[in-house]
């Protein structure tokens, strides 16, 4: 990858890359949501709170199902073929390392000229 971030060549595949990243993030969040609601439900005693959380739990499970199906359909997620998933994981690890190696702030970013003292120094 060249270091010229204005170069349009660098935006190749980025929309797809962004979509997969957001999808994975959404999947993890929906999972977490279901688990959190279930845990909250076991700490609930009032009937109305229980009814509300229960409704939201079922909605959360449905949403998790939807996002899982979408990701399988788009081939972003391979729960049945572990070797395929492994390839995908390698690829995303590679991309992450590439981002880590980017020199995103090549010039001096010191803002001392604007904020020359810490707030508690008068």
């Amino acid at each position: 990858m060249n270091q010229d971030y204005q170069d349009p060549i660098n935006s190749l595949n980025v929309p797809e890359l962004a979509d997969t990243t957001f999808a994975v993030d959404f999947l993890i969040r929906s999972k977490e949501g279901v688990r959190n609601i279930a845990t909250a439900l076991t700490e609930t005693a009032s009937p109305d709170v229980r009814a509300l959380l229960r409704k939201q739990l079922m909605q959360g499970i449905a949403m998790h199902q939807e996002i899982t199906e979408l990701m399988v359909e788009k081939k972003w997620f391979h729960p049945y073929e572990l070797s395929e998933q492994y390839k995908l994981d390698r690829l995303s690890a590679k991309n992450t390392i590439m981002i880590g190696n980017m020199n995103l702030f090549p010039t001096e970013t010191n803002r001392k000229g604007m904020f020359d003292r810490t707030p508690d120094e008068h």
Binding site: S30, A38, T42, I61, H64
Partner: peptide, 25 residues
Amino acid sequence: GVRNYAMAVTEAGTPEIKEILTRHL
């Protein structure tokens, strides 16, 4: 039990298993 099932539901992808686990939950 509730917590175990909630974990398992979000790990299931096959509709058959997911339906069973949701009902058990």
